[in-house]
Nucleic acid binder design. Structure first.
Length: 282
DNA sequence: ATAGGCGCCTGCTGGC
DNA sequence: TGCCAGCAGGCGCCTA
């Protein structure tokens, strides 16, 4: 579920609530997330103070005063909120951190349990983790030449490239489709077949779409909520995602849905033609 | 190197 | 009404 804009929203919501707070208790549901809990790490959190809350791709990173890094991924249905301890406990809450004497709680709710939570001993170990998973650059810091090169050397669809966290971190199914529409590029086009102008246009489209989605606090289709429990609003601005059969906002042609890179993919058959339109003769 | 399939989970929707 | 297939903001593993 959550892609970069949703994770960014959660991080911005949580930061003022967690920064400088001490973890006074830890409770777990007993059900493991995507990876089984490693024994004992929950207890290790107790007594630690949280210094910073940052985002990298779709990862949430909480730095502790011991130099340890508590790292979370929301998977498809993860929700991370800070609430008063008296708030009724929802189902599917798998981790509760008591804050400042237990008046407040950080709760990790994850219906499908595809999320993860890991404690890294220090910054180096975290860096190793990102390096070994080859996590790519943030979309807002994409170097134009790097991007062109990654596209041109890839013998696969633009959709698959956008979804590959090693090429660029944070883009998921919604924002891949919306970015390709914005750039007027067919999702099935191969990376090696786009020219420099198209590559640049896609790079800028990703940035524009993600910025706007962050402004709207992300997209809430079913489960997503921010760190204060509110839904996002960007789903009202989808131009192709989930709009199969509806008229294209630019040209009124019905939006098509195909399966690409194993995911539902939405595009306009006219605005995003399979081949470049030849202009003016030749 | 790439695609495709599956598995990990729960919940919702639509068709019969 | 119930049942069942198919679908869902992710990702890692396997095979061809």
């Amino acid at each position: 579920m959550p892609e970069l804009p949703e994770v960014e929203t959660v991080v911005r919501d949580l930061r003022p609530q967690l920064k400088g707070r001490r973890i006074t208790s830890v409770q777990v549901s007993g059900l493991s997330l995507r990876k089984p809990w490693s024994p004992g790490w929950q207890d290790e959190l107790v007594g630690k103070k949280m210094l910073t809350v940052e985002r990298r791709g779709k990862w949430i990173i909480v730095r502790l005063d011991t130099g340890q890094h508590f790292v979370l991924h929301l998977g498809m249905s993860g929700q991370l909120t800070v609430v008063n301890a008296g708030e009724p406990l929802q189902n599917h809450v798998h981790l509760i951190l008591g804050l400042n004497g237990g008046k407040r709680q950080l709760r990790f709710r994850d219906i499908r349990r595809f999320g993860t939570a890991t404690l890294f001993t220090d910054a180096d170990e975290l860096e190793c983790f990102f390096t070994s998973s080859k996590l790519g650059p943030e979309p807002f810091e994409l170097d134009a030449d790097y991007w062109k090169q990654r596209l041109h050397q890839a013998d696969r669809s633009l959709k698959a490239i956008l979804l590959d966290q090693r090429v660029v971190a944070g883009v998921g199914n919604i924002y891949a489709d919306e970015s390709l529409f914005q750039a007027r590029l067919q999702p099935a086009r191969l990376g090696r077949d786009v020219d420099d102008t198209e590559a640049n246009s896609l790079r800028r489209a990703v940035v524009t779409v993600l910025h706007r989605a962050i402004e709207r606090r992300g997209s809430s289709i079913r489960n997503y909520i921010g760190g204060r429990g509110q839904r996002g609003d960007y789903q009202h601005e989808f131009r192709v995602y989930g709009r199969t059969g509806e008229p294209c906002p630019r040209c009124r042609a019905p939006i098509e849905r195909i399966r690409l890179a194993g995911r539902s993919t939405h595009s306009c058959p006219d605005c995003q033609p399979p081949l470049r339109i030849r202009r003016r003769g030749s």
